[in-house]
C-alpha cells in the first residue's frame, strides 16, 4: 500500500493541474457565466441538473446575439461575487440588484429587469403592519446577502425585529410556510408567482406596500462583472439593448410573466 507512490503523486498532479490560471482573453469569444440556481423562476436547477429560468434565458439570448459561446455554472449566492473576483467565471446573471455597496467591488451592466420588494406574512399574521414598529418582536426572514437582507438588518433589526437570513430563497419559503417565520421580505416578482402557484404559497399573503427605497434597493437588476473587464461590460450592455430592440426580450418575458419586467 505504502509503496504505491504512483497513485499519490498522480492525485497530487491532478490537484495541481486544476489550478488553471484564469483566461484573460480580451477578445471575448467565450463567456463563463455564474448563477445561483436556487431562485425560481429566475434561475433554478431542473431534475436533469440543467439550469433554467429568466436570468438563464436572458444570458443565453445575449450570448447568441453577440455571437459568443457561453458556459453557465451554479455557485452559492454568498459566494457569487468572491468567485467572480477569483476568476471562476466572468459574469453574474443571478437577479443581482445594482447597489452602490456592490458597485464598489464589481461592475454592473445596465439593468435587464426591475422589481420592488414586498413583505409576505402567514395568514395568521395578515393584520400586521409592515413597518418596523408593526413587526417588532416578530421573526422576519430574507435571503442572506440580498438587498432585502441588508434593508431588514439596517431598518428593521434596530426596532426589535428578529431577522433570520437564509442561504437560499427556497429555504426561506419553506420556513415561512411551516410557520417558523412570521413574515418575509423578498422580490415581488418572485413572491407573487410563489403565492399564487406553489402548493406552499397558500399559507401566506402580501402585507403592506411595495418596498423600493433606492438607498437600499438600488437601480434594478443587472449582470455583474469584474471592473477590469470593460470590454465585457460593453458587450453585455449592447446585448441587452439588442435583445430589447429585436423582441427577444419580450418573448422571454412573456414565457415567465404576464406583465413587463423591464
Amino acid at each position: 500500500m505504502w509503496s504505491r507512490a504512483g497513485s499519490v503523486s498522480a492525485a497530487i498532479a491532478a490537484v495541481v493541474l486544476t489550478f488553471a490560471p484564469g483566461a484573460h482573453a480580451k477578445e471575448w469569444t467565450t463567456v463563463r457565466i455564474g448563477t445561483e440556481g436556487a431562485y425560481p423562476p429566475f434561475n433554478f436547477m431542473d431534475s436533469n441538473q440543467q439550469l433554467q429560468g429568466f436570468d438563464i434565458d436572458i444570458a443565453k439570448a445575449i450570448c447568441e446575439k453577440e455571437k459568443v459561446a457561453c458556459e453557465i455554472v451554479a455557485q452559492d449566492w454568498d459566494g457569487l461575487i468572491p468567485a467572480l473576483l477569483a476568476g471562476k467565471y466572468d459574469a453574474i446573471f443571478a437577479s443581482m440588484s445594482i447597489t452602490e455597496e456592490r458597485a464598489k467591488t464589481i461592475a454592473f451592466s445596465e439593468r435587464y429587469y426591475r422589481s420592488p420588494a414586498l413583505f409576505v406574512a402567514s395568514k395568521g399574521n395578515a393584520s400586521l403592519a409592515s413597518t418596523p414598529k408593526g413587526l417588532a418582536g416578530k421573526t422576519v426572514g430574507a435571503q442572506s446577502g440580498t438587498v432585502s437582507a441588508t434593508y431588514l438588518q439596517a431598518v428593521y433589526a434596530p426596532a426589535g425585529v428578529d431577522v433570520k437570513l437564509y442561504a437560499t430563497q427556497d429555504e426561506a419559503n419553506l420556513d415561512l410556510s411551516s410557520g417558523r417565520l412570521d413574515a418575509m421580505l423578498a422580490d415581488k416578482v418572485v413572491m407573487l408567482p410563489w403565492l399564487e402557484k406553489s402548493q406552499d404559497g397558500g399559507c401566506c399573503q402580501v402585507i403592506g406596500q411595495d418596498v423600493s427605497d433606492p438607498k437600499y434597493f438600488g437601480d434594478g437588476i443587472g449582470a455583474g462583472m469584474r471592473k477590469s473587464d470593460p470590454e465585457l461590460k460593453a458587450l453585455i450592455d449592447k446585448g441587452i439593448a439588442d435583445i430589447r430592440a429585436d423582441g427577444t426580450y419580450d418573448k422571454i418575458n412573456a414565457k415567465y410573466f404576464p406583465f413587463s419586467l423591464y
Partner: peptide
C-alpha cells in the same frame, strides 16, 4: 450556521457577505 443560527461561523458568513473581506 447552515440552518440560520448566527453562531461564530454564521456571524462570520454574514459579515463576509456584507464586506467581502476574506
Amino acid at each position: 450556521s447552515v440552518i440560520t443560527v448566527v453562531d461564530l461561523m454564521g456571524a462570520t458568513k454574514r459579515a463576509f457577505s456584507g464586506s467581502l473581506s476574506f
